[in-house]
Amino acid sequence: MITFSHVTKSYNGKRKAVDDLHLTVNGGEVFGFLGPNGAGKTTTIKMLTGITDIDEGSIEINGYNITSDSMKAKRSFGYVPDSPDMFLRLKGLEYLNFMGDIYKVPKSLRQERISSLASAFDLESALGDHIQSYSHGMRQKVMVMGALLHDPDVWILDEPLTGLDPKAAFELKKMMRDHANKGKTVFFSTHGLDVVEKLCDRVAIINKGQIVLTGTMDEIKGNFHQDDSLEKLFLEITKNE
């Protein structure tokens, strides 16, 4: 479970990147976080993961405050950043082993999880190579594997489907659904509106730092014309005033 309580963040003390964000993401939900470029999605995720500090308000992950109880909060989530170009000089397996050490995953368990994740993402033959030799999609896959290695309760994924091939995208979406079905939380940002329509239990749309709409797909559509596509709703909600 994730709780944002009146969270505000501004840059240079002037422009508010996120303004009074108040939101709860429950266990058992796949939650889609939508918004146009520069709306405040990445800033929100950076505050959520402890990368950026919060000016006002607070964020709790599974009951742990990301500012005051940061170690416990960080241990309870797995995070996939928006750019997978990390640790390019390490081999895939070395990176995963490093993540296993960081999250203290026992050796037998990490071997089992790496094997099953590598099989799901079709990455078995690449784990012995340097990440630098991977395509964008393969890098994304290995980052997802690293984030899920310690089987965290909360998944925080920043545009996780970008660059994935259809099979890997299908696998990841299935894994997200299965994880939520176990009563756990998946919070992800995306620009893929069709994915949101098919996968998400609830959605929030952020624009100019403020949440402009939250709810299930049915609730959102109920506020507008029932027959409109999410794309049309999104464009209408986020159009420049």
Partner: peptide
């Protein structure tokens, strides 16, 4: 960057997957 794309067998996997302390792992 060169790549072999060779699937590692169980032994190779076991020998690479070493459990280390955080400081040692970070140093490596």
């Amino acid at each position: 960057t060169g790549a072999t794309r060779k699937t590692l067998n169980k032994n190779e996997l076991t020998s690479t997957l070493q459990q280390r302390s955080i400081i040692r792992s970070y140093f490596v």
